[in-house]
Design a protein around this nucleic acid. Structure first.
Lengths: 223, 223
DNA sequence: TGATTTTGATTGACTTGTCAATCAAAACGA
DNA sequence: TCGTTTTGATTGACAAGTCAATCAAAATCA
């Protein structure tokens, strides 16, 4: 009622946090709320409280709940994409190293957090009934799939393996996705590191000269 | 699927059968609604309309929405469990045949329908915030995991493979789960048969003497 | 057998609560 | 000052759950 005198140690949310910053803050709150309360129970008020602002503000920045959720998925998809693109760019050009980079990228600590896994899963489930979600959901990142297939093809050729590159690519991809799901479903969750070793075991089964269960073999065979 | 909204002329079932039949009918409607509208948009009225009855009846049979959804998950979990148990029982005792049976069972046409996949995914996402769901969700069917590990251990021993049975079991399990997810996420979905071949490719990579991409090798090597 | 009572299934109007969205006013920065 | 950001009371829509009334099948009786 009175002039906002007593603000108890409000952890300085600068009022004029830049527009972008506030939007990001609300998106983060949405992810957290999706994880904590589930898709069905996530309300605008809930998101606002998590972000420490009033609910009216969420509508001010995102107009509708629908848009808030869509933007959140968009953010996750972009973050995921940026992550693997950067990993590929930073890795040596040989196919084994590139494959290794893609695998490691999936279990990056920024990407593979419990909250984000749950959020992804919520969107996957919802995607069936919402075309807007569908095209942004993981398995439809065509560029990713193409890259992975290309890398597998080069690795198959380089190592004289006899697999179908496309099928190997799909197995590796669904193994990583399945491991994500496993990480979030398990009552007693295992570490990201153990998850990574699971995918490496799969890579090692297909490309024994280039991978073992600990990851990329050090002495590269084909150079 | 049941049109005939106006004059159902339903074959009058005896009371007891009718009760069970109606409950099952409502559970089926719930799965369908979850798939068609998503978890968040699935209302009691929606389920009732799908089943062709009034919404009051849903409450009569299930008391609360919560209970309806829990019972639906329970039904899915039981159906899944019965399916792999039956498959194991019907298969020859040797480990390769048992593993083959488990793999095929996952892509059974009763289990692996688009609607049921979406429903599973919805429950996975929701499970994080609902302990009741969590314990019934796929990755926590301990009996299944134990069986799969045991079979892998026997197959590793029989074939003189050098893998860790537990890790192979996990890879096979998450590959199957990931393929499920892939089936429902893909804009251009592939067939159950192609899905099956994907998992076979994984099995073949680990157990090349016993599996190839088409499935279980006919002439058993170790007898 | 036919007439009756009892039980259980089903309906749809109603109550109650929740939530997205709106809006006027306040706070703030330039 | 003016424009932007933020608040919180309010609105209106909608969904879950309740309940009295209806109806049909089953049980009981004559």
């Amino acid at each position: 009622m009175n002039r906002t005198a007593a603000e108890p140690a409000a952890i300085a949310l600068p009022r004029k946090a830049s527009r972008e910053h506030r939007r990001q803050q609300l998106i983060d709150a949405t992810i957290e709320s999706l994880a904590r309360r589930g898709y069905a129970q996530t309300t605008m008020t809930d998101v606002a409280v998590t972000a420490g602002v009033s609910h009216g503000l969420v509508n001010f920045h995102f107009d509708t709940k629908e848009k808030l959720l869509t933007e959140t998925l968009l953010y996750l998809a972009e973050e995921y994409r940026d992550n693997w693109l950067a990993a590929l760019a930073a890795a040596p050009a040989d196919p084994a190293a590139q494959l290794d980079a893609l695998i490691v990228a999936d279990f990056n600590e920024r990407i593979c957090t419990p909250s984000k896994l749950v959020a992804w899963c919520a969107f996957w489930a919802e995607a069936q009934s919402r075309p807007i979600y569908q095209e942004k959901c993981g398995a439809n990142d065509l560029a990713y799939i193409r890259n992975l297939e290309e890398i597998c093809a080069r690795l198959v050729a380089a190592g004289n393996y006899r697999h179908s590159p496309q099928r190997v690519a799909r197995v590796l991809r669904v193994t990583a996705e399945g491991t994500w799901l496993d990480l979030l479903s398990m009552i007693e969750p295992y570490s990201r590191d153990e998850a990574l070793r699971t995918v490496y075991a799969c890579a090692a089964a297909f490309f024994p000269d280039h991978f073992d269960e600990a990851g990329l073999r050090k002495p590269s065979v084909d150079n």
